[in-house]
């Protein structure tokens, strides 16, 4: 479904990604793991077009994304749940969801999708008129995921959904990811919480200093000495 070939990107003079390649098949859940500063967020930003591609190719369902401006990426079926959630703090929950359905194609199905998101997250329905910025971190994460779902995506990009949350909530967030998968969404998730995320996804890539170091099935990675020693701390 999504294919990256030799993708490089950076900020000004600084290069953050060096020829990264990966692919995500329809129906899969794939993780990109790696330490802080590895370039995981940058990778998702390139996919969403927020920062430009310097080298390489990007495609979604065979359609090249290299020249698609950022605000049109979502039309190809890619929705991005950004790092730190980035809700609009002074809009209500429902208004946040409304922005998620900004695309003309999504507007016409707004009511239907709103019901869907509310059925997925009943908590959001209770809080529909609350200002998003006043909710707890876990609730905000639900809202951010809901907002992304409002565009009716095929592929969901998630940037460290568990970051900054209490351990109990982290567990809930990974349960959420499972639920999303079971709804038939394809997921590309970026995480530092490696042990947890590997239990949720099918495959994963290890990113270090802007380069893909390893990739494989989750179970294999969980068992690999290198990962265990360096990242899981066993």
């Amino acid at each position: 479904m999504l294919k990256l070939e030799g993708v490089s990107a950076g900020y000004g003079d600084f290069q953050a990604l060096f020829g990264a390649s990966l692919d995500v098949q329809a129906g899969e859940a794939v993780a990109v793991i790696g330490p802080n500063g590895a370039g995981k967020t940058t990778l998702l930003r390139v996919i969403s077009g927020i920062i430009p591609l310097r080298e390489g190719h990007l495609s979604m369902e065979g359609r090249p994304l290299d020249r698609v401006p950022a605000h049109r990426i979502i039309e190809t079926g890619i929705a991005h749940v950004p790092e730190n959630r980035r809700l609009f703090p002074r809009l209500t929950v429902e208004e946040n969801l409304k922005i998620g359905a900004y695309l003309p194609a999504a507007r016409s199905r707004f009511a239907e999708r709103l019901d869907f998101v509310y059925s997925l997250f009943p908590r959001m329905k209770e809080r529909r008129n609350q200002l998003a910025g006043t909710m707890s971190g876990g609730e905000q994460q639900m809202c951010a995921i809901g907002r992304a779902l409002m565009s009716g995506p095929k592929l969901l990009l998630m940037d460290e959904p568990s970051a900054g949350l209490a351990p109990v909530i982290v567990q809930q967030v990974f349960d959420l990811v499972r639920r999303i998968r079971s709804e038939g969404y394809t997921v590309l998730i970026v995480e530092q919480n490696i042990q947890q995320v590997l239990k949720v996804v099918d495959r994963a890539y290890l990113l270090e200093v802007g380069r893909i170091k390893l990739s494989g099935k989750s179970a294999d990675l969980l068992a690999s000495d290198e990962i265990r020693r360096a990242y899981i701390g066993l």
């Binding site: 401006p69 979502i74 950004p82 002074r90 922005i99 359905a101 900004y102 695309l103 565009s151």
Partner: peptide
Amino acid sequence: TFLGTAIRAIAQDREIMPLMGVDS
């Protein structure tokens, strides 16, 4: 309206508007 809500949203977070499909 959708447009009006987006106008209020952009004042709160400019950077992520493209992720919503909004052309700033």
